[in-house]
Design a protein around this nucleic acid. Structure first.
Lengths: 192, 192
DNA sequence: CAGGTCATGTAAAGCGTTACATGATTTT
DNA sequence: AAAATCATGTAACGCTTTACATGACCTG
């Protein structure tokens, strides 16, 4: 009532904000659905938790980037969001922004590999075997769950989600071959 | 004086703790040197900041995993650390631990790619070009700075740092080819 | 002698995860 | 009838980053 509607003058949007904004733009309209869809699409390169989604939606709504409409299913409250003109503009200029942030990888298993010289030959092999197994699992999930969904897009639908999925899948495939090679080399070294 | 020397009964060590511990074990003895060496070795899969190093060293010292010796260079104070038996044990059981944490990737650029359908064909190409350029830079740095240092190891020295470096370098190389391919496909689509 | 590197820390702020809390609806 | 899923949030905690602070030593 007393709040200037578009408001958000000095509002700093994070990549997580744009993830939410982009999801709403793709037609994923509720907080719960955004989290569910993110889990099978963007989780590999930008993980989010459900606890981030709701405050972020409110923030974007307060800033005028989204509109909120109450649409209860039965007696259960539910909020449905739509992107505004302002939201589209913000998303567009983020997508065109040229400042490139570095990739950030965090992998405890790779850290273990780095220090693996402290292990016996047998334990080294076991460590690499665990790395391979985890990677194989990730690859499987990618190929079976994520890629097919991303590729099952109606004509005229978005096609970059499938590009991103294929990239991840191919990276996992490459890592799989690489780690197999490493295993073989270690086995060979053991015998000599 | 009144402190039980080994102390650390219920002390929870994080991957960052083991990174520090492992570095000291490899003969990197001061906080400053650990950060410097981490920057050209483990930064790609477990980034740390200098502000983490010193408190972590103190924590590990308090827990009896490291010994501290004061060794000033000129009038400048300096602490040199050594790993203890207890530290070796802890590092070993972490390395042999079978619980596998998931890889965690965070890449704003990939997130942009995922939502690139909102862009014009020209802007899509520009986005991919930026991705490629960043990747090429990472690959270059890997090949020119990190790999050679990791591979320049005296006989009997650790050889897994070089394995880890080669893995990263090869991943970047793979991504480079993949992104080149994507660029070509987009160019081809544009003409048709 | 100025700027860079060596060297060690503290404080504040930001971001994200886990756990907590609640309750309706749907599926088995 | 129980379990899973839908649905929305809050609170506490932990890890990391950035900024602040200090000062000696070395190189051009």
């Amino acid at each position: 009532m007393g709040i200037d509607p578009p408001a958000g003058g000095a509002m700093k949007l994070t990549p997580t904000s744009f993830l939410i904004l982009g999801m709403v733009r793709l037609g994923v309209r509720t907080g719960y659905d955004i989290k569910k869809f993110a889990d099978i699409s963007t989780q590999n390169f930008w993980p989010i938790s459900l606890a981030q989604v709701y405050p972020e939606l409110s923030k974007l709504h307060d800033g005028g980037f989204l509109t909120r409409r109450s649409d209860p299913k039965g007696g259960r409250p539910r909020s449905v969001y739509t992107i505004t003109e302002r939201g589209e503009t913000a998303l567009g200029s983020w997508l065109r922004s040229t400042k490139t942030e570095p990739v950030q990888l965090r992998d405890e298993a790779m850290l273990r590999l780095f220090f693996a010289d402290a292990l016996s030959a047998a334990d080294q092999l076991a460590l690499v075997a665990r790395l391979r197994e985890r990677n194989r699992g990730n690859h499987e999930e990618m190929r079976r769950e994520i890629l097919p969904r991303a590729e099952a897009v109606e004509p005229g639908g978005p096609h970059y989600p499938a590009v991103a999925a294929r990239f991840s899948a191919d990276l996992f495939a490459f890592a799989e071959k690489w780690l197999m090679q490493l295993s073989s080399e270690l086995e060979a070294d053991k015998k000599s």
